[in-house]
C-alpha cells in the first residue's frame, strides 16, 4: 500500500534549505523476508519525527540502515546531507548519533569514562567541556564519577542520551528511548526530548508508545513493513476519521432515528450503548447547537454533547491492527 500523505503535511524549513533526512524507496530484505519495503519520506531540520509501528515492523532495521550499520537492498537516502553509500559510512556516522534501544554502556567504566571514550571516537575537541555540558543537559553532572553498572535503568538511559548529545549531531536517532522505563523515568526522558526539540535538534524517534509520539513529535509515520501513513497527528486523525458528535442522555431515546434523521447537519448516526449516540456531522460547531435544540425539544435529558476525539492510537489501530491480526492467523 502506498503511503498516505496527509494533504497539508508540513515540511519544516531546514537551516541549509534541504531536509535533514531524505529517504526514497528504501528497501531492506533479509533473504526472502522483507524488513521494510519502498519507504519514502523526509525529515526537516529541527523536526521531531516519530516512526511508529508494531514489533517487527522494521523500525529498528530502518534506523540501523540510515545509520550505516546495515546496507539497504535497494533505494536511496540522504542522511544529514550525505548520500547513503558504502563510501560515505564514516562521514555519515560523524554527523549523526544513534541511541539504540538498550544504551549499551560499559558497566565497569564510570559515566565520564564512557563519554570520554565516545568523545575520542568522534574526535571531538574540548572533550571535557562537551562531556560536562552533555551531563548538565541530562541532569547527571553529580553522577559523573559513578560506575555505570551502579546506575538505575533510567539513569543509564540518560547517560545514553548524553552520549548522543556529545557530538552535536545533525540528526539524533532515538530507538525506543523509553523502552522498559517506569513512568517517572519515561517522563524524564520525555522532558529531555522536549528540551532538545526547543533547541531545534532534529530527532528521529522510533517508538510503539503512541502517547509518547503524540506528545513529542511534529510528524509521525506509521510503518508496518511498508509506510502506511505520514503526517501531523491531528491531520492523520482528520484524514482517517469523519468528524462526529458524541451525545449522552440520561435514558435511552425512544425513537432516535426519528429525531436524528430530521436534523439536516447529521449525516448518519449510531448507538454503541443505551443513552450514547455518535452522529456523523460535517461541521460539529454548526451541528452541536442544532442537535441540542432538537433533543431538548424532544424531551430528552441531555447529559453531554461533545466532539468525538480520536487519539493517535485510534489512527494506529485503524491502520495496523488488521495487519497484526492477519499475521497472527
Amino acid at each position: 500500500m502506498p503511503p498516505l500523505l496527509a494533504d497539508n503535511a508540513p515540511t519544516l524549513s531546514g537551516s541549509k534549505g534541504q531536509p535533514a533526512l531524505v529517504v526514497n524507496q528504501l528497501t531492506k530484505h533479509f533473504g526472502g523476508r522483507s524488513a521494510f519495503s519502498e519507504v519514502t519520506f523526509d525529515v526537516a531540520h529541527g523536526e521531531v519525527f516519530g516512526f511508529l509501528g508494531p514489533n517487527g515492523a522494521g523500525k529498528t532495521t530502518a534506523v540501523r540502515t540510515l545509520g550505516t550499520l546495515i546496507a539497504p537492498t535497494s533505494g536511496s537516502a540522504i542522511v544529514a546531507g550525505i548520500p547513503l553509500t558504502p563510501e560515505n559510512g564514516v562521514e555519515i556516522r560523524q554527523r549523526i548519533a544513534i541511541m539504540p534501544e538498550a544504551p549499551g554502556l560499559y558497566l565497569r567504566l564510570t559515566v565520564t569514562e564512557n563519554l570520554e571514550y565516545f568523545a575520542s571516537l568522534y574526535g571531538l575537541p574540548h572533550a571535557a567541556s562537551r562531556i560536562s555540558d552533555a551531563l548538565e543537559a541530562v541532569n547527571l553532572a553529580d553522577r559523573a564519577g559513578d560506575l555505570c553498572g551502579g546506575l538505575s535503568k533510567g539513569l543509564r538511559q540518560r547517560v545514553g542520551l548524553a552520549r548522543t548529545l556529545l557530538s552535536n549531531p545533525a540528526i539524533m536517532f532515538l530507538d525506543e528511548p523509553t523502552s522498559g522505563l517506569d513512568p517517572v523515568a519515561s517522563r524524564e526522558v520525555h522532558e529531555l526530548i522536549l528540551g532538545l526539540r526547543q533547541k531545534g535538534v532534529t530527532i528521529f524517534l522510533t517508538t510503539h508508545r503512541l502517547a509518547e509520539a503524540e506528545k513529542l513529535c511534529d510528524r509521525v509515520a506509521i510503518l508496518n513493513t511498508t509506510l502506511r501513513i505520514i503526517g501531523r497527528p491531528e491531520d492523520l486523525r482528520a484524514q482517517l476519521f469523519t468528524t462526529a458528535l458524541v451525545i449522552r442522555t440520561r435514558v435511552a431515546l425512544r425513537a432516535p432515528d426519528q429525531i436524528f434523521t430530521r436534523i439536516p447537519a447529521v449525516e448518519s448516526w449510531r448507538s454503541d450503548e443505551p443513552g450514547s449516540y455518535v452522529l456523523s456531522v460535517s461541521d460539529p460547531k454548526i451541528a452541536a447547537p442544532e442537535v441540542a435544540r432538537v433533543l431538548v425539544g424532544a424531551g430528552a435529558d441531555v447529559l453531554a454533547i461533545g466532539e468525538a476525539q480520536h487519539s493517535l492510537e485510534d489512527v494506529y489501530l485503524e491502520l495496523v491492527a488488521d495487519d497484526v491480526e492477519a499475521s497472527r492467523e
Partner: peptide, 8 residues
C-alpha cells in the same frame, strides 16, 4: 557493540 558501531 552496537553503540560502538554507530560511531565514525
Amino acid at each position: 557493540l552496537e553503540p560502538l558501531l554507530t560511531t565514525p
